[in-house]
Write a protein that binds this DNA or RNA. Sequence first.
DNA 1: CATTCACTATGATATTTATCATAAAGTGAT
DNA 2: ATCACTTTATGATAAATATCATAGTGAATG
Lengths: 233, 233
Amino acid sequence: MERIDMNNPCGCEKCELRSVFFESFRGDELESFCRNKQETFHHRGDFVFHAGDEVKSFSYLKSGLVKLFKTMANGKDQIITIAGPFDFVSLLGTFTISHQPYSVSALEDSVVCHIDIQQIKHIVKHNGLFSLNLMERLGTTSNKIIQESMEIRKRNTHGKVAYFLLKLSRDLYMNQTFNLPVSRREIAEYTGMTTENVIRTMSEFRKEKIIRINGREIEIMDMESLDRISNFG
Amino acid sequence: MERIDMNNPCGCEKCELRSVFFESFRGDELESFCRNKQETFHHRGDFVFHAGDEVKSFSYLKSGLVKLFKTMANGKDQIITIAGPFDFVSLLGTFTISHQPYSVSALEDSVVCHIDIQQIKHIVKHNGLFSLNLMERLGTTSNKIIQESMEIRKRNTHGKVAYFLLKLSRDLYMNQTFNLPVSRREIAEYTGMTTENVIRTMSEFRKEKIIRINGREIEIMDMESLDRISNFG
DNA sequence: CATTCACTATGATATTTATCATAAAGTGAT
DNA sequence: ATCACTTTATGATAAATATCATAGTGAATG
């Protein structure tokens, strides 16, 4: 993890969260916000938080890709969700709990923005528009996680893998060819399957010419079939 | 569904949400709140919301027990969570979405409090302390759902059923003897198993003298074993 | 450059879970 | 009380998934 020293700390012109974090600021709130905002850079594989860490900041992903996960008693990880740019890395619990419930680590080189938790609480308390905007945004995030968890749960192994590949293709990369940001083991941790069955399922998709696999590169060749497997499997 | 006419609309002396809904009110907010708050009564089995209904209010459970669920394409239900007194029935999505993502129905006779969504948004916007309190409370709820979903997912069928029975006994009824508020089919919908396997698993627990079943009444006879099954199954 | 280690891959087998079939018991309505 | 319907129950079988074993591949490291 490296701290980023910025000459322009609030150079967030392209930030999708502008509407939440800036358009509702008043008076000296913006200045105070910029003064306290910190960015950290994390190489692929590095941790952003460890489960159990003290919650000091409210954080969101500026660029890259991270996974939120929990390490179970048997040492295996369980992935809760994968977050992309402008997704919150701290979930809502941040407001009530003192220690991170999940670990967060970088799947790709990532930049995370941290806002001091006390400062966020202060702004929420004193700026209603900001509160409302933040609440809407946080609600969407939590809802998405719950939604996705239900979607994956109801599918069989083929459906789970198809759903995951489609999610990457459609929501994250918006392209039918993309580089898998996760290992087969991580897909297993996310979908609740065994690694072997993820590999087997992807091999079957390959043999049936539904996808093409070239190292980390995946091309969805038969979107219709993959969709059918995702919806009926 | 019956509307309740109250002579004392804000007679919520025992409400656990007092701190969120009252202690942060200022000036005429309390009066306005009481004027607009509505309560509805729902008999066991009745719907509180149907998925797809327009979101008009922000709602929480005053008494009783409800389930939040989704009806899938194949007609089967998937239970997201079971909510008890003072749990929110509207999740966070309420702030962003226009239509209910889930159906809600009463497992026991229930009273639900509804606050006009526009009014809630207005208060959030103008009362920072209320915002912060509400956000904390909503965060806890969402977190609990996500948490629970992960807990269930990682268990095998025996572990799922054991976990569910322990949850009822410990969190909801705080007693090792209680009346099951749900059918075996609903346990299946909540845990993602088949009804037959829920029945079979409970029968096995009965045969092994871990639980006693007498109609709807369940007594956990061997808490230690059930705990072991929940934790290692 | 060799070595180690994680990842991908595949087959054989065991286990778990779902499906199908049947029946008894409970529930609500008339 | 009777009928229709749902829930609980159990067994037999099929299907899905996990486990175990083995090996090739690729990436990182000294």
